[in-house]
Design a protein around this nucleic acid. Sequence first.
DNA 1: CGGGGGTTTGAGTCCGTTCAAAATACGTGG
DNA 2: CCACGTATTTTGAACGGACTCAAACCCCCG
Lengths: 243, 243
Amino acid sequence: MAKIKCQVDQCACSVCHVLQRSDWRVLAGDDLAILSSGVAMRHYRAGETIYWMGDANRGIHCVSSGLVGVRKIDAEGNSVLLRLGYPGDTLGYRSFLMGSEHKTSAETLEPTALCHVRPETVAQLLERNPSLGLQFLRRASDELEQAHHAIFQSVTLSNRQRFVHLLLVLARRHGRPRPDGSRTIRLPLSRGDLASMIGTRHETLSRIIGRLEADGVANFSGRLVHVPKLDALAEELEPGMAA
Amino acid sequence: MAKIKCQVDQCACSVCHVLQRSDWRVLAGDDLAILSSGVAMRHYRAGETIYWMGDANRGIHCVSSGLVGVRKIDAEGNSVLLRLGYPGDTLGYRSFLMGSEHKTSAETLEPTALCHVRPETVAQLLERNPSLGLQFLRRASDELEQAHHAIFQSVTLSNRQRFVHLLLVLARRHGRPRPDGSRTIRLPLSRGDLASMIGTRHETLSRIIGRLEADGVANFSGRLVHVPKLDALAEELEPGMAA
DNA sequence: CGGGGGTTTGAGTCCGTTCAAAATACGTGG
DNA sequence: CCACGTATTTTGAACGGACTCAAACCCCCG
């Protein structure tokens, strides 16, 4: 364990396998060296909490491998999964920049490796290289657009349509295409989390899944989904659909 | 008309009455002069469109006075008002930075004055002064947090609670406090737009308003609202409420 | 083999939607 | 200033979807 941790800790960011997909790709030379010196990688098991909503910010994280869930929870225990963090994604930059506590919680959904960047290092890099800030800005803009899209869909689409949309999104990331054009997806989420992402209860989602199977659009077996025709799914989102 | 327009056009940004509330407050000296030279103010009547969803970005706007609505619309005519733009707010920075078409439409909800900043000017300023990018980043982060909050509430709160929450927000901006502790609000929105902001239909909102009046929490007369006790409104959002 | 979390299913109820019509407010032109 | 037409808002009744509560089921893991 100590050995493994040590090995990855010594990895320089300049040779990171997700560097080109991450916000840090705008850095080079000395900046990359500074980043490396302020970074520590840590391995998480599935289901560990990275930070809690309400915690003070203690730097930002970069997903190296695995999968992270970002969620909001309230006092009654209501939990909504807001987005998923994939390798290359940055976590916690918002509370860092606003100088506020974390407004969301983050937890691992699979065994995950995260690189933690010390706050002083981030501040130093932002000052040295303005393009890093612009890169974060692009990320925030993109997330904002996605959030607006989600709000719009929650008003205009049915639960079934929203779930189909979510399935299509997950199919892109987690789906394995098959020679016959069908697709197999291993869902990284429980029914409860899937339900919260489309804004409904897990019981309702269960029934939606039942109807999807009855209609022959998709087959579910635990977290495994088989979609015979991806097009048939996509058609459910077309405007002017009956039945 | 021409005279008035001319007068405001000549206003330097350095003396702008909303400068200190705007993202441009991080600029000074030469930067402010550059900004001024790339800015043109325009007056809009209520209900005019500033840009359409799908339009190419042609620079960004700064609200000088009045009120702007940012919305998404789809082919079926569904319209959702996503947020309001007040004096000092910046519009269109997202599509500018992402180099994409506008993902939302913007329209005036009241007679409004907007300062348009040419794209080259924005690019030039972003390059000269990194703190402008960071300022935009803070704005985007803030909007993202608001969007996440809205998504969370749409899942966990009832229609009535969401409307009460919206009322409280609008009361802050548009409410006039009275000596006896009550408050009068002139709503800047139609029932349809209010309904879309909480994710429901205008008929449903009408009934919610009816119940609010029956419960003595607020009185509605057209776009005028009278709230006897603001605390009574706020209590509706407390967890563990019955009835 | 016995938990225990996650998932499915069931029945009843409530809330929100839909379609329709009436009532009210608003802007325009006479 | 009033009459008129239009848009917005309110109200009604019926329907349907989603929620709640509850129980049964399943599967994974110790």
